[in-house]
């Protein structure tokens, strides 16, 4: 493996949890729901994946456990915001607080234990392609899932009837309701999908990225994922680009330091954030594009009238 490959691999690993969590949240937001609890669902996924992998001895089961944990946790958000129409912003933030606390309690028994790592799956033939084979086709299953999620969500949103309905709800829940679309049920499904993705992203942290459990190990990645959705102006392919850009700048600044560029590390650490703002500003110069994609009823509660 040469150095370029190694660096790209590092970037891919760093970007995968961001990508997964962001793609899930994208679907949620496209349905008109703003769930700021990504960090909380992610950390629940991380602790559940680690714990289940430890108990069953299977990292694969751990990954599934993380996914389910994220999904179950998101139901709590769904019940409050969709059934009881509580404020979405505040509920999402509360979900994060709850997740950080609960995961810490669950995880107490697992501190200081080396974790199981989810093994890479080599895809025959494809993995032998020079240079990119090693990068794209000899990866852990969660990486594959993240790519499948991007392609799948892109297809779903823009090519399927169900996706059309989901976008319609996001744009105007009242009109969608009037047309007979089941607003609340669709939103529940979207929220659960978002939770599952965030849970899997958390699982990636605790059984692939750094196979161990420590409190608060998500370290703000859920927030970055949220920002990436906006950055991508709610387009799945741009989430992919955004996550990898963010990963590339984050890893790039570490390399710059190791090379000894002599710029204060705080400025280098700030680069990924500044780069994200800069790119978004450039994208948003195209006003029409942004407006088209923004779900108009984002964050607004819906109660069916009868």
């Amino acid at each position: 493996m040469d150095m370029t490959q190694a660096i790209i691999l590092t970037i891919m690993t760093a970007a995968t949890p961001l990508l997964l969590a962001a793609i899930g949240e994208l679907v949620v937001e496209r349905s008109g729901v703003l769930n700021l609890g990504v960090e909380g669902m992610m950390i629940m996924g991380a602790v559940a994946a680690f714990a289940i992998a430890q108990i069953t001895g299977s990292a694969g089961l751990g990954a599934i456990g993380g996914l389910i944990a994220g999904m179950l946790f998101s139901l709590l958000f769904g019940f409050l915001t969709l059934t009881l129409v509580a404020n979405q912003v505040a509920t999402g933030l509360a979900l994060t607080i709850l997740g950080l606390g609960l995961s810490g309690m669950i995880g107490e028994a697992f501190i200081g234990l080396p974790g199981l790592k989810l093994a890479a799956i080599e895809i025959p033939v494809l993995a032998d392609i020079p240079f990119i084979g090693r990068l794209l086709f000899n990866q852990d299953p969660i990486f594959y899932m993240s790519i499948i999620a991007v392609i799948g969500v892109n297809w779903f949103l823009f090519k399927s009837r169900a996706g059309l309905r989901l976008r319609a709800i996001g744009d105007s829940h009242s009109s969608a309701h009037a047309l007979g679309v089941k607003v609340v049920r669709t939103r529940y499904l979207a929220v659960m999908f978002g939770g599952a993705c965030a849970g899997l992203a958390g699982a990636h942290l605790s059984i692939v990225y750094t196979p161990q459990w420590v409190e608060n190990m998500t370290a703000g990645r859920g927030w970055i994922a949220l920002a990436l959705v906006v950055f991508a102006s709610w387009r799945p392919t741009r989430v992919l680009a955004g996550a990898y850009l963010f990963g590339a700048v984050s890893i790039g600044q570490l390399h710059a330091q190791a090379l000894g560029v002599g710029i204060p590390s705080q400025f280098l650490s700030a680069l990924p954030y500044l780069a994200t703002i800069a790119v978004l500003v450039i994208i948003s110069l195209n006003r029409r594009m942004t407006l088209i994609n923004t779900p108009a009823s984002l964050g607004k509660s819906f109660v069916p009238e009868r």
Binding site: L80, A94, G101, G104, M105, E108
Partner: peptide, 18 residues
């Protein structure tokens, strides 16, 4: 532990919002 207090805080917020 401080984890329990955060969990409890989260619960309180949920109930108030709900």
């Amino acid at each position: 532990t401080d984890k329990v207090t955060r969990l409890f805080q989260g619960l309180l917020l949920f109930f108030v919002l709900g």
